[in-house]
Structure formats: structure tokens, C-alpha cells
Design a protein around this nucleic acid. Structure first.
Lengths: 329, 329
DNA sequence: TTGAAAGCGTTACCAG
DNA sequence: CTGGTAACGCTTTCAA
């Protein structure tokens, strides 16, 4: 393991001062062309690479944006990440990603690690555990230190930029669509009842069905959902299902398939799932498309704006979801 | 934007020396309990957080491992990442992730950025473009500076640790399985003919079919594959398909479905795709499972070992794939 | 055109 | 037990 050569060592070899080397490598007007060339050649020869840590420490800037994500299993978050990536890749900024696996402790650690000089700004979707605990102490005050942008998961107590999804409206509209289609008894299934996102979507459902029937809500594990749905379908108690996340969507799909109620639309099903999966199911699954890429692109752009104008008022942007109609509705 | 308080400022406030503050915060035996307490309280009060940049620069260690990935769309790579994550999360190390979008230029940039002090080690799967160009100049010599581990994509010219997948054998065995099942004419479809992975898999196919028939190879875009397959199936020229990646697998699946040759196994199909997708297709898709998680876990463990013993001989570990038999074969 | 020196925020050695 | 000082690798001001 041989260490990288430093400016100091280079200056010794070339018998010039440290500052001359530094200036030459940074193409300063103060240095003559000939020495510049000599120094640059030596730098290349010895494979000199500036130590980022030192540069960043000195300049107080890192040109890096930290992205803290709960999970990559979640297709939506992965898509958001790609949106962020795409935008940032066109700028002088780099991104570094930290995954919390929906754990509060990992999130605290990630935020601490990043916010202490490693990045110029943080884009975060808080973890499920954080939302359950409602403990945001690691984020409070952070906005005073570096720009902070939260997306997808709502946290009201923090003053920062936000990019949110219209979770309430999206489900409200989708369920209303089912009602207009003549559905009389719509069940809700969810594996994400602990998150702000899940709660908003559930509220959208509850309000949408309130004139039609009492809410029928099944929350919990995929297995639980499958069991409950199975008996509801057997007893012909429902004619439609609204699923709030990929796991519950696929659970509902499996049961619907098993009971042979999807192809003939005895039961209508609208879910949340990735495009590639939804399209390839038979029958293809009607979903609510959250436009994850757009959430990512919007977040990144808003953050870039904030980095340029740190003093301006924080913004909240809402990205509207749309129903992607396929064959289960 | 108020800057983080520093040890220096803290020392001024408390009217003690900088070194005393530093030692107190690091629980040095040299400092009395009472001053320790006083200093720690003040640190908490003023929300002191050590500047990572300075700490890392000083110590020459970052406790961070850089992971350079070509893409997150690739389910296999995403799974590897989760494997790495899981292992690293149990250690004192953090990981930072950089995505190259299969671009050579981005890869060079990522490696440069990371290797200049930002991380203690790099785990990388080179991009497709890098493999096409066969330009590894950004990696040559890197192993002398920090531990380097390459996974999935083979690059022979670099001396470093490796975790590879048995691409040749996997396809060879799968195709042989098809032959044992009585398949007489097996087509190969691939969207990844430019990568080392694709080439190895193709070779496995070619050798496997050589006693049975001439190879039938369709490489290119999904659309091209769909067109070619469509006519081959119509002309009854084939009775099985081996697909080398998710895109071609799904393209083959779509055509097989359209031509109604999958359910009755007129055409057998083995592909590469994520479990969640493969399972939910109708009929469910037989795939080659590369055990991505295991690749990630193995890579992370090997890297941790290398960080402990930098001098020991580099290793190459091969993770064997297995055929996950479902209903298309 | 070049160089000396201070400073970014830490840690650690050595004196006192 | 506490404090001064050098050092990590770099940039930048000021002097020469």
C-alpha cells in the first residue's frame, strides 16, 4: 500500500516551494508557463492526485450531496434515486448515498456522519422506524447547518424544503374511480400502516368510501392480508380492492388470481407497484403511478436552487400521482 | 446557515486549551472527571459535532468503503448492494455508493473522487462502457493505494480481490438441462452481448449446444429480439429459449405469451430475472439465480479481511448460480 | 514569478 | 492534570 504522493513531496523533488506546485497545478496566472509545464509533467509522472479531504477541509465545500434512503427494495425510492442521480450528474456535484434499512438508529448515524463536513446538503426520506417513534431530534437544527430537503415522507416539525407525493388525493381519486365504475364494496389492504404515507393513503380511502359503505381495512403482513382477503372474497363481501404498497398489491393479486376473480373483473384491483412488474402480470395490474423519477428530478433541482440561494424561503412541492389503468380495473 | 461549533471556539468559551477539550471529548485518562463533565456538557449544549473531514485527514482513515455500481436498475446489482450493506452495517465502517450509469467517464470520475482520501477501500463492478473500451487505466495502480475488490464483471489485467459469478457454467448447465429434457433447437437471446458477463454466458450456450445443433443467437434490442423470436416461433424453428438478462427474458416472455407457446411448454424458456418478477409471471419463469445477496455478502467479508491484512495474497471467489425451476421449463 | 507562512479542525506528543 | 505546538495536505495572502 503506497500512499499517494503529496504536494509537499512533489515540491521537494522538483526543488520548488509548496505554493508554487499548488499554484501551477491550479493553473494560476502567477506561475510561468515553463514551470507550470515542468510541474504538471512531474505530477502526472508520479500520479499525483489532490487529497480531497484536505481540499474540502480547506475550502469548506465538498461539492457532494448526501442522499439518505430507507431502502432500495422499495421500487419507488430506487426510482427517485435515479431521478436525483440524473440531475446531479449534470452538475459539479457528486452524490453519496446512505441506506438506513428503515432503521432509526442507522438513520441517526447516517445523518451524523454526513452532516459533519462530508456533504454540502442532505436529501432524505426518513425511515419507517423514525416515523413510528416520531423522534426527529437528529434533524432538528440540521437545517441551520446545511440545506436539508425531505421527500416522500412527511415530517411537519422541521422547517426545510420538501417534495411530497399527493398520497391522500391519489388514493381518494382512485377509489372514487372505482365507485364511479359501480363498485359497491371496496376493501383496503396495506403493509405500510405505520408510515405517514400509509396513513395519508388510508385517509384518502376512508373519505372516498364514506358515502358508500363502512371502510373495510386490512393491515399487516402479506400473509394476514391473503387470509383475510381470501375469506372476504369467498363470502362475496367485496367487489374491489385498493392496495397501498407493492407487497400488499402482490398479495392481493395472488389471492385474486387463486380465486379466479381478476380476469373477469369480479374483483377490481388497484395497487402500487413498479411498472415492469405491473405490466407483466396477467392480467396486468392497474396501479397508481407516483412518478418517482419526477420526484427525484424535482428534489435535486430544488436542492441545487437552495445551494445557490440559501437564504430564500423554503418550498414545498407536490408531485401528483396518476392512475395507470391496466386490466385489473 | 450557522456553521458547526469547533473545538477551538468551545475552548475559548470554556477558557481551557484546545487540547484539553479534545482530550475530554475523547475521554482521555489525562483529564479530570470534573472538567470532562463540564466540557461534555458544553459540547452538548452547543451541539458540537467533530468535523469528519478534519478527523479523517488527521488520522489517515475514513472508516468508509466506496461501492461503485454501474446501475441500480439491474436487480442483481441492487441485490449485491444489499448484501454488502448488510455486512458492513455490522462493522465500524460506512459505505458510500456511487452510480456510474454504465458510463466510462462517470466511472473514472467516481473512482478518482473516492480514491483520493474519501474512502479506505473500493468495491467495484466496472461499467459496460469500460468493458467495451477495455480501458482500465483508472484502475491500474489503484490497488497499490487502497484495497480494491472487483465483482461480477471480469477484468483480468488488474491484480486485486475478486468475487465472480460462474456465468459460463451456469448457462452451460441450464442449456444442458434443456437438452436432457428433450429440447432439440434452443435459441439464445441477449441484450448484454457487450459485457464480459454476456460473453461468458454466450460461450456456455455455444459449447452446450454444439453436439445438438448450430447456435441460434439473437443479440440486440428488446424489439429486435421480439421480432426475430416471433418469426422463429412461427416457423417452428425452435423449441426452447435461453435468455441472458432481464430485458431479453421479458422480451422472450412477452413473445412466448403472445404466441401462446409457454403455458403448454411448446417452447421452454429459461431466463435471468428478479425473483419477485419471475414468480408473479404467468406462467412463472424458470430462471438462473445468481445469488446476488451472497455475492454482496462475500465481497464485503473479503474486503473486511483485506482491510485487516492488506499484505496477504489476493483472492478470487466464485459464487455458483443455480437454476430456479418454475413453470416455463 | 516565486516562496514563506497562516489556517481549515483535529489529534498527539511533550512540557510543565 | 493541563496547555503549547506540530502535523495531516491543501489553498491563499502577502512579501520578496
Amino acid at each position: 500500500m503506497k500512499k499517494n504522493i503529496t504536494i509537499k513531496e512533489l515540491s521537494k523533488i522538483l526543488e520548488v516551494s509548496i505554493s508554487t506546485v499548488s499554484k501551477a497545478l491550479n493553473d494560476s496566472y502567477e506561475i510561468s508557463e515553463s514551470t507550470k509545464q515542468r510541474i504538471k509533467e512531474a505530477a502526472k509522472l508520479y500520479n499525483y492526485k489532490p487529497n480531497k479531504l484536505a481540499v474540502n477541509l480547506k475550502s469548506g465545500k465538498t461539492n457532494t450531496i448526501g442522499v439518505v434512503l430507507p431502502s432500495l427494495k422499495n421500487f419507488f425510492l430506487a426510482r427517485v434515486l435515479r431521478g436525483i442521480e440524473n440531475v446531479i450528474a449534470t452538475t459539479q456535484y457528486n452524490i453519496i448515498i446512505s441506506i438506513t434499512n428503515e432503521s432509526f438508529e442507522k438513520e441517526v448515524q447516517s445523518v451524523q456522519t454526513l452532516s459533519n463536513g462530508l456533504v454540502d446538503a442532505i436529501i432524505i426520506a426518513v425511515s419507517e422506524e423514525t416515523q413510528i417513534k416520531q423522534d426527529f431530534s437528529h434533524l432538528i437544527g440540521l437545517e441551520d447547518e446545511i440545506p436539508l430537503l425531505m421527500f416522500d415522507r412527511e415530517v411537519n416539525s422541521i422547517d426545510c424544503d420538501r417534495v411530497l407525493v399527493d398520497d391522500y388525493d391519489a388514493v381518494f381519486n382512485a377509489v372514487n374511480g372505482l365507485i364511479s365504475d359501480g363498485r359497491k364494496s371496496i376493501a383496503l389492504v396495506s403493509c405500510i400502516n405505520n408510515s405517514s404515507v400509509g396513513k395519508l393513503r388510508t385517509k384518502g380511502y376512508i373519505v372516498a368510501v364514506e358515502n358508500t359503505h363502512d371502510p373495510i381495512i386490512i393491515e399487516g403482513s402479506e400473509e394476514h392480508i391473503e387470509n383475510e382477503l381470501s375469506s372476504l372474497i369467498s363470502q362475496k363481501k367485496i367487489d374491489a380492492i385498493m392496495a397501498l404498497d407493492q407487497e400488499s398489491s402482490l398479495a392481493a393479486f395472488r389471492i385474486g388470481k387463486k380465486k379466479e376473480v381478476l380476469l373477469d373483473k369480479t374483483i377490481a384491483l388497484i395497487g402500487y407497484s413498479s411498472t415492469v412488474i405491473s405490466e407483466h402480470l396477467t392480467p396486468s395490474l392497474t396501479t397508481i403511478d407516483q412518478h418517482g423519477k419526477n420526484v427525484g428530478v424535482t428534489s435535486a433541482k430544488l436542492m441545487l436552487k437552495r445551494l445557490e440561494k440559501p437564504q430564500e424561503k423554503r418550498e414545498s412541492i407536490i408531485i401528483n400521482s396518476t392512475v395507470q389503468k391496466r386490466l385489473t380495473s
